[in-house]
Amino acid sequence: MKNPFAGIGDLGKMMTAAREMQGKVDEFQKTLETLTVVGESGAGLVRVTANAKGELQALDIDPSIFVPSEKQVVEDLILAAIRDAQDKAMARAQAEGQRLAGDMGLPPGMKLPF
């Protein structure tokens, strides 16, 4: 008769590995909150700071562009800087995710569940 509890040791190892992986994913998420990127437009006239999760943290506008007749230009520059910061945040998050996956011994290109 086969022992029904023979694989429990392996199951325990799998559960431990799953908890460790979850801890690393949680740490990764916290890291994304602390990493910052700066998006800009108009040769730096508008700068947006975001964390690697894409959450906007700061906006810096050079005062030289505050001309009432240029309202649309300023709005376009702000949107362009936001998009730039969000694109950089996504790239940074992907790079950090690949680094974490490599650290955990996962195959290249495997995406972690976020």
Rank of each mutant, 00 (worst) to 15 (best):
Gly42Glu: 09
Met14Tyr: 00
Val74Leu: 15
Lys30Tyr: 01
Val74Ser: 10
Thr16Met: 07
Val25Pro: 01
Ala89Met: 07
Gly12Ser: 12
Ala52Trp: 00
Asp26Thr: 03
Leu56Tyr: 01
Gln72Pro: 05
Met90Lys: 15
Ala101Phe: 05
Glu40Arg: 05
Arg47Tyr: 00
Ile65Asn: 00
Gln29Arg: 14
Thr16Phe: 04
Lys24Met: 12
Ala43Tyr: 04
Lys71Gln: 15
Ala93His: 05
Arg83Ser: 13
Pro113Phe: 04
Gln72Trp: 05
Ala91Val: 07
Met21Cys: 11
Ile65Arg: 00
Gln22Met: 06
Gln94Gly: 08
Gln29Lys: 14
Glu96Ile: 11
Lys111Glu: 15
Leu77Asn: 07
Glu27Phe: 00
Ala81Ile: 05
Thr16Ile: 00
Ala52Cys: 01
Gly97Gln: 03
Gln29His: 10
Leu112His: 01
Ala43Ser: 13
Leu11Met: 15
Phe28Tyr: 09
Met14Asn: 04
Asp62His: 14
Asp60Cys: 11
Leu77Cys: 09
Ala80Phe: 14
Asp103Ala: 15
Val67Phe: 08
Gly12Ala: 14
Ala50Gln: 06
Phe28Met: 07
Asp87Tyr: 00
Val67Glu: 13
Ala85Leu: 08
Ser69Glu: 15
Thr49Arg: 15
Met90Ser: 14
Ala95Thr: 08
Ile8His: 06
Met15His: 01
Val73Asn: 13
Pro108Ile: 05
Phe28Trp: 06
Gly7Glu: 11
Phe5Trp: 12
Lys24Tyr: 01
Val37Ser: 05
Gln29Met: 05
Phe114Asp: 02
Lys2Pro: 13
Gln86Trp: 06
Val37Pro: 01
Met15Trp: 04
Pro113Val: 02
Gly102Met: 06
Glu33Ala: 15
Ala43Phe: 03
Ala85Gly: 09
Glu70Ile: 01
Ile82Trp: 02
Gly97His: 08
Gln22Asp: 07
Ala17Phe: 00
Gly105Cys: 08
Asn3Gly: 11
Leu106Pro: 02
Phe114Gln: 07
Ala58Phe: 05
Met14Phe: 08
Ala95Leu: 09
Thr31Ala: 14
Val46Met: 00
Lys88Phe: 07
Leu79His: 07
Val73Cys: 08
Gly97Asp: 02
Leu35Trp: 04
Ile8Pro: 06
Glu33Ser: 15
Pro68Asn: 09
Lys2Tyr: 12
Ala80Ile: 13
Pro68Glu: 10
Arg99Tyr: 06
Asp62Ile: 10
Gly44Ala: 10
Arg19Cys: 05
Ala95His: 03
Glu33Tyr: 07
Leu106Arg: 04
Thr49Leu: 09
Ser41Asp: 11
Val46Ile: 05
Ile8Val: 15
Val67Arg: 14
Ala81Cys: 02
Pro63Tyr: 02
Ala80Pro: 14
Val48Asn: 08
Ile82Met: 13
Leu56Trp: 07
Gly23Pro: 05
Arg92Ser: 15
Arg47Phe: 03
Gln98Ser: 07
Glu96Asn: 07
Glu70Ala: 11
Ile65Phe: 03
Ala93Leu: 08
Met110Ala: 10
